[in-house]
């Protein structure tokens, strides 16, 4: 069963010439208990899509249902089964971490005692117990994001939306967040996650939808997407220019396609199936033939390659950013 379904979702901002088709006919289907990564650069329409699915924004056309409830007609039912962690931490800076969680829990219809217990559990789970009674103003960026995610989990939602959960986090906080997300998924939560980071989608998502200019331009598992740009390659740099022809002959025999040669850098690249085992074979044969090599590697295409191949432009700059004090 699909936990999230969207058909032909459209959202248009502005009027006339200034009109932006932020989301331009998006179809999605996320099976229960799986993770969909919505991958795209800044301005692709990820946030707008998530806001429509989370009932914060009304689609201009198309329809969507979450947990079987229509996001427009049955919005309140959707709200009672989802959690949303937006792109920016939506917590009250002037309340403490605990006060935030208790408030959201009460608004989620928990009684006073249950709300306090739920808050304690989440504070513990997200490593915020020590900071629980400090106002959020004093939290670091990573702590705010964790509190925001904890807020999204107040009602133990079956379906969770996370909009760029690690954007702006330092590498350590990012890895911590990945662990938290993996934990949630293990418990069976259906997750729709947006990201600008290819490795993040690769790491966390079962299936990926690549979005650009409000449209889905590719979808599949990370492996399927990688296949679209070709499979693995062996890359060899030989020591002597004279050895190139002999090396190419060996690769023709051992690998699975026509090698390409860059004589200037003495680099030979050849498609290969079978991974590491074939790499060992190649190394052995080179050794037997007395060909010295400077470098040899098995290269797998990254999702960066996928994005470049699909759109003709690179996705984004690499993750960076300092954690706020």
């Amino acid at each position: 069963m699909n936990a999230i379904v969207a058909e032909g979702l459209v959202k248009i901002y502005g009027k006339g010439k200034a009109q932006v088709r932020a989301v331009d006919g998006v179809d999605l289907a996320v099976a229960q208990g799986t993770v969909l990564g919505l991958l795209g650069p800044n301005g692709a329409g990820k946030t707008t899509t998530v806001r429509m699915l989370a009932t914060l924004l009304r689609p201009d056309s198309g329809r969507a249902s979450v947990g079987g409830h229509d996001v427009v007609r049955d919005a309140q039912a959707v709200r009672s089964i989802i959690g949303l962690s937006g792109q920016y931490a939506a917590v009250d800076e002037n309340l403490t971490g605990r006060e935030n969680l208790v408030l959201f829990a009460r608004l989620y219809r928990l009684g006073a005692a249950d709300a306090r217990r739920r808050a304690d559990t989440l504070l513990e789970q997200f490593g915020l117990t020590d900071a629980a009674d400090r106002v959020v103003k004093t939290y670091s960026g990573g702590m705010r994001r964790r509190l925001d995610l904890a807020s999204a989990l107040i009602g133990t939602p079956r379906i969770l939306f996370m909009d760029e959960p690690t954007t702006g986090l330092d590498p350590r906080s990012r890895l911590g967040m990945w662990d938290v997300i993996r934990g949630l998924v293990k418990e069976g939560t259906t997750l729709l996650l947006t990201t600008q980071y290819l490795e993040e989608a690769d790491e966390l998502a079962d299936r990926i939808a690549v979005v650009d200019h409000g449209r889905i331009i590719a979808r599949g598992t990370a492996d399927e997407l990688k296949k679209q740009v070709g499979g693995e390659r062996i890359e060899v740099v030989v020591d002597q220019r004279d050895a190139i022809d002999h090396a190419v002959a060996i690769l023709r025999r051992d690998a699975d396609g026509e090698p390409t040669v860059d004589r200037h850098t003495r680099r030979i690249t050849s498609p290969v199936n079978g991974g590491a085992q074939r790499l060992i074979q190649v190394v052995r044969d080179f050794d037997e033939a007395g060909i010295k090599i400077d470098d040899i590697a098995l290269r797998r295409p990254t999702l960066d390659d996928v994005f470049l191949a699909l759109t003709g432009h690179a996705a984004v700059e690499k993750p960076a950013g300092e954690e706020a004090a």
Binding site: R51, A54, T55, L56, Q76, R79, S80, I82, G83, L84, G86, Y88, A89, A90, V91, D92, E93, F104, L107, Y108, R109, S151, G155
Partner: peptide, 13 residues
């Protein structure tokens, strides 16, 4: 502007 209204609006309140 701080997104708190979004949080409230995503709750079944």
């Amino acid at each position: 502007n701080k997104g708190i209204l979004d949080r409230f609006r995503s709750l079944p309140m």
